[in-house]
Amino acid sequence: MEITFLACPVSSAPSASTCPLTPSTAPSVWTSTGPAACAISSGWRSASQARSCSSPTLSMNWSPHRTKVLKKVTRECGPALSQEQLGANICLDVSSDCYFLFEDDKFIVKAFRLFHRVPSFGFCVQERHRPGRLKTELLKELGVKPGPVYGRLKAGQPVTLESGRLLLPSEVLEESIPGRKVCILGDCSSALGEAPVRVCQGADLLVHEATLGDEHRDKAVEHGHSTPQMAAELARACRAKKLALYHFSQRYKPSSLQRHEDDTDDVTELQRQAEQVLLDDGVDVILAEDFLTISIPLHRPK
C-alpha cells in the first residue's frame, strides 16, 4: 500500500457553490455531482479541479457493480470522461456518523465530516485482515496433500477429509495478519463529532493539514485551517503510527530557499512543532512534498 502526494494548483479550487454538501446542513446523503465528490468516486476529472497543493492521492478502481453502498446513480455531472464511473447517492450511516463509500474483499473506504468554511471530508482506507500462513506440517500429519485443498483452507473454507472429518481453517491457519489503515483529512480546523477519532484509531498513517505555525493558531482557525499542534493532538488521540503534514502556507519554504540565515519561516519548523507534541508517543512526523510516496509495509503477526 502506497500514498503519493501530487502537485495541484490552488487557483482553480471549486467554490462552495459547486460542492454538494455543507457542514451546516448535517447531510444524510452524499451526492457525487460536484468536483469534491468526483474525487472520491472516480478520481479528479482534471488536475485543475484539485483543492490544494501536495494533495494526497489514492488510486482505487471504484466500480458501481462491486460496491455494496451504491444507491441511486446520477448523471447530473454531465457526460462522464473515459476514466470515470457514474456517480452515486450515498447515505450517511447514522450509527457510525460515516459514509460507507466502498467495500470489497480487500478494502473498506469510509468518509467522515470535518469542520471547514466549505464542505470538507476525511477518508479512511482500511485493509481487511489477511489470512495467516498454513500450518503445513500439521496438514501433512493429517494426510492433506498440497493442492486445491490448501487454497480452500487459505480462503477460509472448511474441507471434508477422506476420513470424513470436517477440517476447519482455524485449525490449520496461523494468526491472521492485521490490515493496514491510512486516513487522509481534507482542509479543516477540527474534526466534526467523534467519528474521525473512532474511525482513524490505530492508523498506520494519518495525513493532516498544517497551514500555519502554532503561533498563528487564531488566524488558522479563523480561515478553517489547522496548525502542527492541532494535527499532532489528533494523531495522538487516534494513536496513529505516522503523521504526514501537508497544505502549508506559501510563507513556509524549505531550507534550500531561505534567503537569510535568520529567516524563521522554514517549513521544518512546522515539523518541529508537531514533533514536540508527540515527543513521548513515538509517532514519526513527515513533511509532505510534491511527488513524495510513503509506503505502508505489511504488518507482521503478533
Rank of each mutant, 00 (worst) to 15 (best):
A16W: 06
S24W: 11
P27E: 15
T31H: 09
G34D: 11
S41E: 14
W44A: 14
P56Q: 11
L70Q: 13
Q83N: 12
I90V: 14
C91D: 10
S96E: 13
C98L: 14
F100W: 14
D105P: 00
F115Y: 10
S120T: 14
E127I: 02
E127K: 00
L134Q: 07
L134E: 01
L142R: 07
V144W: 03
P146Q: 01
G147K: 01
Y150Q: 00
G164H: 02
P169M: 04
E174F: 10
E175S: 10
D187I: 15
C188Q: 13
S189V: 13
S190H: 04
E194Y: 06
E194K: 11
E194H: 08
R198D: 03
V199G: 04
G202R: 08
D204M: 01
L205A: 04
H208A: 15
A210C: 05
G213H: 08
E215L: 06
H216P: 01
D218E: 15
V221R: 09
H223G: 07
P228C: 06
M230T: 15
E233P: 02
L234P: 00
R239W: 07
L243C: 01
A244S: 01
Y246A: 05
F248H: 05
R251C: 10
P254L: 12
H260T: 07
T264A: 14
L270G: 03
Q271K: 14
Q271M: 05
Q273Y: 06
Q276K: 13
L278K: 10
L278P: 02
D281I: 02
T293Q: 01
L298V: 06
K302P: 06
